[in-house]
Amino acid sequence: SGVNQQQLQQLMDMGFTREHAMEALLNTSTMEQATEYLLTHP
């Protein structure tokens, strides 16, 4: 699906929903950016 499943699982383990985590990974290129994205786009 174009996203790193390991990163997706890590974000879900942090408490984010699958949909939200996927959106973040699709819009960013690193785990750090994805986390930042999730925190700034709740």
Rank of each mutant, 00 (worst) to 15 (best):
Q5D: 10
Q33F: 04
P42I: 15
S1E: 12
L25I: 07
L38Y: 03
S29G: 07
G2N: 12
Q7P: 04
Q7D: 12
N4H: 08
T40W: 08
H20W: 15
Y37I: 06
L26H: 07
M31Q: 03
E36Q: 09
L11M: 04
Q5V: 12
H20M: 15
M12E: 05
L39G: 09
Q7E: 10
Q6S: 12
M31K: 03
Q7K: 07
M12V: 12
E23K: 08
M22E: 09
L25G: 00
V3F: 11
H20I: 14
Q10M: 13
E23S: 08
M14Q: 05
Q5Y: 12
L11R: 00
F16N: 03
T30H: 03
Q9L: 12
S29L: 10
T30A: 03
E32Y: 04
E19I: 10
M14H: 04
E32A: 10
Q7C: 07
N27V: 10
Q7G: 06
N27W: 08
Q9A: 12
S1N: 13
E36F: 07
E19H: 13
L25D: 00
Q10A: 12
M14W: 09
Q5G: 09
Q7A: 09
S29N: 11
T40S: 13
F16V: 05
Q33R: 04
R18F: 07
N27A: 12
Q5H: 11
M12P: 00
T30P: 00
T28C: 07
L38P: 06
E36H: 07
L25T: 02
A34N: 01
T40I: 07
L26V: 08
N27D: 03
E23Q: 11
Q5S: 11
T30D: 07
H41R: 06
Q6I: 12
Q9V: 08
T17G: 12
R18M: 09
A24F: 01
R18S: 05
H41P: 05
Y37E: 04
E32K: 08
E19N: 11
Q5E: 12
T17H: 09
E36S: 05
T30G: 05
G2L: 12
T17R: 13
L8S: 01
Q9W: 11
G2T: 12
T17I: 10
M14G: 04
L38T: 02
H41V: 07
E32F: 04
L8F: 04
E19K: 11
S29P: 06
N4E: 07
A24N: 00
G15R: 02
L25H: 01
L25C: 04
T17V: 09
S1F: 07
Q6E: 13
Q9N: 09
Q33H: 05
Q10T: 14
D13S: 15
D13L: 14
E32R: 05
A24V: 01
P42V: 15
H41N: 08
A21F: 01
Y37R: 04
Y37N: 05
P42A: 15
V3D: 06
L11N: 00
Y37H: 07
G2F: 12
G15T: 01
Q6K: 12
M22G: 04
L25K: 00
Q33S: 05
M14I: 05
V3L: 09
T40R: 08
Q9K: 13
L8M: 06
S1R: 09
L8A: 03
Q33G: 07
A21T: 04
M14A: 05
Q5F: 13
E32P: 03
S29M: 10
T17N: 13
M31E: 02
Q10F: 14
A21Q: 00
H41T: 09
A24D: 00
T40E: 08
M14N: 04
A21W: 01
M31I: 14
R18G: 04
H20L: 15
D13N: 14
L38G: 02
V3S: 06
A34H: 01
T40M: 11
M31F: 15
M14T: 03
Q33I: 02
M22W: 09
M12G: 01
G15Y: 02
L8Q: 03
T30F: 02
P42L: 15
A34P: 00
F16A: 06
L8I: 07
R18A: 07
L39E: 14
Y37C: 06
D13R: 13
S29Q: 11
T30M: 01
L39Q: 15
Q33P: 00
N4W: 10
Q5N: 10
P42G: 14
S29C: 09
S1H: 13
L25Q: 02
D13P: 00
T40L: 10
F16P: 00
L25P: 00
L11Y: 02
L38M: 05
S29H: 10
Q9I: 10
G2R: 09
E32Q: 10
Q33K: 06
L39K: 15
Q10D: 07
Q7I: 08
T17F: 07
A34F: 01
G2P: 12
L26D: 05
M12L: 07
A24S: 03
N27L: 10
S29E: 14
E23L: 11
G15M: 03
N27Y: 09
S29K: 12
F16E: 02
P42K: 15
G15K: 03
N4G: 06
T28E: 02
Y37P: 04
T35R: 15
N4I: 09
Q33M: 06
Q9P: 01
H20Q: 11
L25A: 02
D13F: 10
Q6A: 14
S29D: 14
M14V: 04
D13E: 12
Y37L: 06
E32W: 06
P42R: 13
H41W: 13
V3H: 07
Q10G: 05
M12I: 11
L8W: 04
A21K: 00
F16R: 01
A24W: 01
N4Q: 10
N27K: 12
M12D: 00
R18I: 07
L26R: 12
L8R: 01
Q33T: 04
A34R: 00
G2V: 13
Y37A: 05
M14K: 05
E36T: 06
M22Y: 10
M31V: 08
T30S: 12
M31A: 03
F16L: 01
L38K: 02
T35I: 15
T40H: 10
Q9G: 07
T28L: 03
M14P: 00
T28P: 01
L25V: 04
Y37K: 04
T28R: 03
E36A: 09
A24I: 01
L39N: 14
T17E: 10
M14D: 03
M12T: 06
M31R: 02
H20V: 13
M12W: 02
P42Y: 15
G2S: 12
T40K: 09
Q10N: 06
H20P: 05
A34I: 03
N27T: 06
E23R: 11
E32D: 08
G2D: 10
T28H: 05
A24E: 00
R18H: 06
S29I: 06
T40N: 15
L26Y: 08
F16S: 03
T40P: 03
M22P: 00
R18K: 09
T17S: 14
F16G: 03
E23W: 15
F16Y: 13
Q5M: 14
Q7Y: 15
H41S: 08
G15S: 03
M31Y: 14
N4P: 08
M14S: 04
A24P: 00
L11V: 03
Q5L: 14
L11C: 01
P42D: 11
T30N: 10
Q33V: 01
N4Y: 09
M12A: 04
A24R: 01
Y37D: 04
V3P: 08
E19R: 11
Y37Q: 05
H41F: 12
Q10P: 03
L38E: 03
M22K: 06
N27F: 10
L26K: 09
L39P: 06
Q5W: 13
A21R: 00
G2M: 14
T30Y: 02
N4A: 08
Q7N: 14
L39M: 14
L39S: 13
A24K: 01
Q7F: 15
H20F: 15
Q5R: 13
Q6C: 08
N4L: 11
S1V: 13
S29T: 13
H20A: 14
M22R: 08
H41K: 07
S29F: 11
L25W: 05
G2A: 14
G2E: 11
T28Q: 02
M14L: 11
A34Q: 01
Q33E: 15
G15W: 02
M14F: 06
A34W: 02
Q33A: 13
H20N: 10
A24L: 01
T17Q: 13
L11K: 00
D13G: 14
Q10R: 10
S1Y: 05
P42E: 12
E32M: 06
H20S: 12
L26P: 00
Q10W: 11
G2Y: 11
R18C: 06
G2I: 13
R18P: 04
F16H: 06
E23V: 10
Q10I: 14
L11E: 00
S29R: 09
Q9C: 09
E19L: 11
V3Y: 10
